[in-house]
Design a binder for these strands. Structure first.
Lengths: 212, 212, 212, 212
DNA sequence: AAGTAATCGAGACGGTACGTCCAGTCTTACA
DNA sequence: TGTAAGACTGGACGTACCGTCTCGATTACTT
């Protein structure tokens, strides 16, 4: 994982160079995906010598990897008291992120690389976990409360929740409109077999609810 | 772009070179993703001069794109008479493909490229359509038959069906086991609000069945 | 020896690039010795891409070597009929060359490299031979004519002739004035044990003759 | 320049570091000539930090230069009472040194550098002087004794003596066999016009031996 | 069947990038 | 203060690839 290079006060220069390099790398990544990042260009853009870059990261891949890891979008775990409310917040947040530019443009690059490079696969796993953990936590918390069926695999619930969103963002490239997001949420609650349906409605608002 | 390489009887040599080039490209693509394909290597491997390759494809991207298009995995539209049966066949088939090596390893490359290159985005859209059309057809046919709720967007149904599968293959990298696939199928039928699904209730639990 | 790259009419570009590269290399060599030649700088200076340079010469050394070989200063063998006259012309010519800028500034570089690199040693040997052969020829011819003692090693005669000149140019860095050159010539003729001394004077003119 | 490294008691550490550095430098010089010495490698090899090296020598050249100076092969001035005897000892000693590994392998490096760097030229001059002074002393002593012709330039005599030896060692790379050395000595005595050399007019052959 | 034009291979060429090594300067922390 | 440790800029090395180019040798279609 490239070792965030212990920031012991040792040398401020180290910290400054590394920050500059990572920033430039991230910028280039946004512009052209992983493939659009070249060490030479990073060096040129941030004024840090190529040699210095290679002193801190053993290879271009390591640099990319590090830049990817920093991408972790910390999402606070909500606690509305009910599964529906929690998930609603989380899903809306995710949809917002997916609609924005930024990491959604890079992720396919990472996934592609992860397909072949074990190191990047590990980085991707970590990144993914940091992204999905709040969802998983919400679901597991609900299960502990007895709000959902005990025989449901929480990861499957999460899959049914975020899978369709991801699908629309990267595969079908259809818009992530509110109606779709609501419907997805609805379905996922069904999957969870949410016990107390009445409470769940509070979360959605717009949600039409399956029936009445 | 890429101009379908009209194989009009023009010259047999043309056809032969192009076939050889595409084959080598495809091979390299499987080995190392889009990034693993270099024109030099393609030339070396299939014995066709680099010049010739550039004579037929304006750029590396165009070649990749063309090779990707050939990847289209033709899926026959099943017709069991019922939505559940049709989808079952389709989903199982898709899951099988996702579990196999081959294009699942390449698709992220394409999606990544599509994120920035409009041409590749178009190619991806086409590829995607050819993959998903059978699903959409099945759903729409069911709707015409009145088997599912009319207020459901067919594309949303498809998303809830394949989204979770895709998610597991590329994002969470969890196994696509049979139980998961079954559950996904169940849920999707719920989403569709499939009529007369007495058996399906097992999936939803609380869900009292579609409509009414 | 890098193969002067047969100038078959194939491609004029090859000839042109190579000529430009060698010229720039030679120029840089004059300015800074072998050590002053960098492939990057050659490329920059003559407008030939570094890649192209490496296409024609496997390494920097090979390029240097080739440039050195081209340095051969063809000296015509004189024929005044007598050893003294021949040597006089040759020695004066050599002294002139030693006094001029140009290869005298580079030769130490080559000798140094030859001390460790067998390839360059070979190149140096060839260069040296082309430089000294006229001297050797003159001496051997004289021997065939019976003008000099038969028990003298021709190479030793040459050594006694050019050794002191070389010594002054590179080792003691004293000036190569006419008196010195004359004296050296005188001595060498002594070494040769030139038979007909009277004839030898014709060559020197200035030469005061040993004693009386 | 280079400031003779005054070993004033200042700090013992200084002396120790400098000695270690010079030793490592000399070692590297023997292995790969001047070009084979890199400050990094010196630092690595002798455990003295690069910074420290640059504190004591302003540049790589200065270090090389200093190391070269240490190379001075002190040659004792012989005194056999006669020029022939003195020169015989000196020349044999020089030939022995030339045949050995060590500085003969480095000198071309120095000469090359001296061709362009005035500082190194000065260092070379000094080194050269320390090497040739015994020869010059012997000749001048003989002249004072009246043993040789007064109209001969002593430096020319020295040139005729060591020039051929140097020539064979570095330029023609022919062996420095005893016969050659003897002949060179013979000739030089001729040049000197050693007194009472009735035979000398003959050039060679006739020469009845050194003197007397 | 010959002639003409399309097609081909071989590979030179200018560029950009890679990852390494070295020169020299500068900073920090320890004696 | 002198030293070790090592970060930093900058430049060169030799390699791989991209996309363009010129050349001469094969084809295949045409007359």
């Amino acid at each position: 994982m490239v070792e965030a290079v212990e920031p012991v006060g040792r040398d401020k220069r180290v910290a400054r160079s590394q920050a500059a390099v990572l920033a430039a790398t991230y910028e280039l990544m946004l512009e052209g995906g992983l493939a659009g990042v070249s060490v030479d260009e990073v060096s040129r853009r941030c004024g840090v010598a190529k040699t210095t870059i290679y002193r801190h990261w053993p290879s271009r891949s390591a640099l990319l990897l590090d830049a990817c890891s920093q991408m972790g979008t910390a999402v606070p775990v909500p606690d509305t008291g009910g599964l529906a409310g929690d998930l609603h917040i989380l899903v809306e947040g995710l949809a917002d992120q997916l609609r924005a530019p930024g990491w959604p443009a890079i992720l396919p690059s990472i996934i592609d690389a992860a397909e072949r490079d074990p190191d990047l696969a590990r980085a991707h796993a970590e990144l993914h976990r940091s992204l999905m953990d709040p969802f998983l936590d919400a679901v597991e918390q609900a299960r502990r409360r007895g709000d959902i069926r005990g025989d449901r695999d929480p990861t499957a619930v999460v899959a049914s929740l975020v899978g369709p969103l991801f699908y629309r963002r990267w595969f079908s490239r259809e818009p992530l409109d509110a109606a779709f997001v609501d419907q997805v949420l609805d379905v996922a609650l069904d999957v969870a077999g949410a016990a107390a349906r009445q409470g769940s409605t509070s979360g959605g608002g717009a949600r039409s609810g399956p029936v009445r």
